[in-house]
Design a protein around this nucleic acid. Structure first.
Lengths: 182, 182
DNA sequence: ATAATATTATACCGATCGATCTATTTATTA
DNA sequence: TAATAAATAGATCGATCGGTATAATATTAT
């Protein structure tokens, strides 16, 4: 069980980073919450930034997998799944610990385009767009590329409105708008 | 000129907060960059959070004014101005110091819905939406409320894609999508 | 000119930041 | 059981954090 501590550290940091942000979450709090010695953390991660990158990788993996499963659950046919995107968003927004998109938040704190953390966030968005394109392609839409871009804009817009403006109906409105475009 | 120092402090902090974020920007750096004594800052602002709130108020004022003037410049008729929204976004995205939406970034660092800073960010988005509704109403569109919401989703989505994913064409694609909805 | 106000520089506070070192103990594996 | 690796607690580091106290200096208005 060599990686048990490492996994636990990532999960703990993931939760704290989502709750309070990256700069606002100190290493002390992470290791104390994880119940792990300080050097254990620095054995697994060269620096706090490396730990942040590890949490982003895990979040991307967990989030995208969960999102894809939600879309498949909420939409039976390939065409239904295009709109199910926004039902999945709705479920996400209504989670009691919803704290926006971790990657948008990470980009906000690490603004440099060349910053590895910012780049990891960009990569996540690109992967989400790829998934959207897969959905539009499987649904046999004309111009699947264009539609994927449009769905992406609506989805990201809904995330911002839900989180920043506290708009609980953002997902539903984005869904209605997507319906017009499909 | 009692408020000269205060204004200068706000402008300086505004720039630094946009560049590096809120938690990452220390009070020391702000006063040093502004060329102002430490106590001068604490005479005008009770705390760093108060200074942050002041910068957000100024940013909201400056940004919305600038945005409205850009829309009027880029679109002659009320109907043109609906699409000019996205030309204004395009200009913004192409600024060399573009660092995303300050209010989205602020929400990322101050996640509590009841946090004054988060609430100020929410207010900005609400005011932007109100402006969009004014535009859709003046353009005599049917369902101006609904269209304003849709334009808002597209605009926010474009901001995220431009900043996080570095998508330079996000504004243009949002514009094309808006064209279908109008 | 005088009184009130604003701004200055500097020292200081306790707390926390990220990170390193050491020495000891606990697990794992050979 | 012996050798190896992982994890522990705790001290320590220099730097920075947000915020305060003080006393001298400018500025402003009466």
């Amino acid at each position: 069980m060599a990686s048990g501590k490492r996994d636990h550290l990532i999960d703990t940091a993931l939760e704290l980073f989502c709750q309070d942000g990256f700069h606002a979450t100190g290493v002390d709090k992470i290791i104390e919450t994880a119940g792990v010695a300080r050097m254990t953390m620095y054995n697994h991660f060269k620096s706090k930034d490396e730990l942040i990158l590890a949490t982003l990788r895990r979040r991307d993996e967990k989030f995208r997998n969960g999102f894809m499963r939600a879309v498949e659950r909420l939409g039976r046919t390939p065409k239904d799944r295009l709109l199910a995107i926004f039902d999945a968003l709705e479920e996400w927004f209504r989670e009691d610990n919803f704290s926006g998109c971790m990657f948008i938040n990470a980009s906000a704190e690490f603004s440099g385009t060349d910053d590895p953390i910012h780049m990891a966030s960009a990569e996540h968005k690109i992967l989400m767009r790829q998934y959207f394109k897969k959905l539009t392609t499987e649904a046999n839409t004309d111009a699947p590329d264009e539609l994927a871009d449009e769905l992406m804009l609506l989805a990201e817009g809904a995330i911002v409105m839900a989180y920043v403006a506290g708009d609980a109906n953002a997902a539903a409105r984005a869904k209605a708008t997507a319906g017009k475009l499909i």
